[in-house]
Amino acid sequence: MAELKQLEVCLCGIPFKNPLILASGTCGYGLELRDYIDLNRVGGISVKGLSLQPCKGNPMPRIVETSAGLINAIGLENVGVNDFINNILPDLKKFDTVIIANFWGKSIEEYVEVARLLDASDIDMLEMNVSCPNIKEGGISFGTNLKQLENVTNSVKKIIKYKPLIVKLSPNVGNIATFAKAAENSGADCISAINTILAMSIDINTFKPRIANVTGGLSGPAIKPIAVRMVYEIYKSINIPIIGLGGIMNYMDVLEFFLVGSKVVQIGTANFINPDNALNIINDLKDYLNDKKIKNISELTGKIVV
């Protein structure tokens, strides 16, 4: 048990048995994974981004692999918030892990309405996706325009009574720290960063983009150094906790994110390669902490030496 305690962390008043969360869009609604890993062993699960109405997503092809990365334009396909709350959440709640509801909207009213429904449900935390680069109608402007970000965060924060609000930032901006600061000032309880980086890949035989949406979001190890730099910049400018993510493949990557200021991390694309990755990382982190005689992983948050 003493060993386990090394990985326990507390985020916005919510205890996590370990600081590894499965990232939104890379673990379905969690239940898809139950035949493959013991969900009770992961710190948390951030489910696929939910919207007010079910959403069919983008045309195919939606994904393409690039050097050490994956470009996706799924288009936020999801079952809709009501179906999630009524038909998926009850089964998900049977697992002993923190349930984070990732959500989005096409207008501030939609964001607010989805947030209201989720706040009244059995989930543990809300994660507001303001940064998905795939949806033509919205998303992008909320996350890349300071005024929009403030408006949506303020409006959502006002309606939420019970649950902490994480704002998940877009990396597709000039200075991400100013966006983090704006989210904090507008009431965000926590920041998660980063979402995918706007990207493109072309087939040189057909001259066509390799995904139907033309552009998509890049994830995976290719983006890790950028993500680490962004978390570093955010940490210096805000006081609320940070969930770091982007390209984490192993425990060493996790430690980098801690050192630049993350309190907790999320694992995304790595789940596709091997759903056991998160559990393997938890074991490797324990070994590292034992080796270095570190009592709790939180001691590493922000301990970068420059």
Binding site: T26, C27, E32, R62, I63, I74, T269, F272
Partner: peptide, 25 residues
């Protein structure tokens, strides 16, 4: 044969549309 990232239903990258009562992913 659709491009697959995960192969186990996590990513929604491999959609095939079926004509059923309604169009289904």
């Amino acid at each position: 044969e659709e491009r697959m990232a995960c192969g186990i239903g996590l990513c929604m990258g491999c959609i095939v549309n079926l004509r059923e009562e309604t169009m289904k992913n």
